[in-house]
Computed example of a mutant assay.
Amino acid sequence: MTAHYLFVTICVALSLLACFANAQLSPNFYARSCPRLQLIVRDAMRQAVNGEARIGASILRLFFHDCFVNGCDASLLLDDTGTFTGEKNAFPNKNSARGFQVIDTIKTRVEAACNATVSCADILALAARDGVVLLGGPSWTVPLGRRDARTASQSAANAQLPSPFANLTTLTSQFAAKGLSARDMTALSGGHTIGLARCTTFRTRIYNETNIDPNFATTRRATCQASGGDDNLAPLDSQTSNRFDNSYYRDLVARRGLLHSDQELFNGASQDALVRTYSNKIAAFALDFAAAMVKMSKITPLTGTNGEIRGNCRVVNSP
Rank of each mutant, 00 (worst) to 15 (best):
M1P: 02
T2K: 12
Y5R: 04
F7G: 00
V8A: 14
T9L: 11
T9A: 15
L17P: 00
A18M: 08
C19D: 12
F20P: 00
Q24G: 15
Y30K: 13
A31Q: 11
S33P: 00
L37G: 11
R46S: 12
R46F: 05
S58R: 14
L60I: 01
L62K: 08
F63Q: 14
F63Y: 13
F64H: 12
F64N: 02
D66F: 12
G71C: 03
S75F: 03
L76M: 13
T81P: 05
F84G: 04
G86T: 10
E87N: 08
N89V: 03
P92S: 07
N95G: 02
S96R: 15
A97N: 05
A97E: 06
F100H: 06
T105S: 15
I106C: 10
T108D: 12
A113Q: 14
C114I: 11
A116F: 04
T117K: 10
V118S: 09
V118W: 08
A121N: 05
I123H: 04
A127L: 03
A128L: 03
R129S: 06
P138G: 07
S139G: 14
S139P: 00
W140M: 08
T141Y: 01
V142W: 09
V142T: 14
L144I: 07
R147Y: 01
A156C: 04
A156H: 12
A157E: 08
A157V: 08
P162R: 11
S163Q: 10
P164I: 04
Q174I: 01
Q174Y: 03
L188Q: 10
G195W: 12
G195Q: 10
I206H: 14
T210G: 10
D213F: 01
P214M: 05
F216H: 12
A217W: 05
R221K: 15
R221Y: 13
C224T: 07
Q225E: 03
A226F: 11
G228L: 12
G228Q: 13
N232A: 15
N232C: 07
L236N: 14
Q239N: 06
Q239S: 08
T240C: 03
T240I: 00
N246S: 02
S247I: 00
Y249A: 06
D251C: 06
D251L: 01
A254L: 09
G268L: 09
A273G: 07
L274G: 12
L274V: 13
R276G: 01
Y278R: 09
I282K: 11
A286M: 03
D288G: 01
A291E: 02
A292S: 15
V294L: 15
K295Y: 00
M296S: 02
S297F: 05
I299R: 12
R310W: 08
G311F: 04
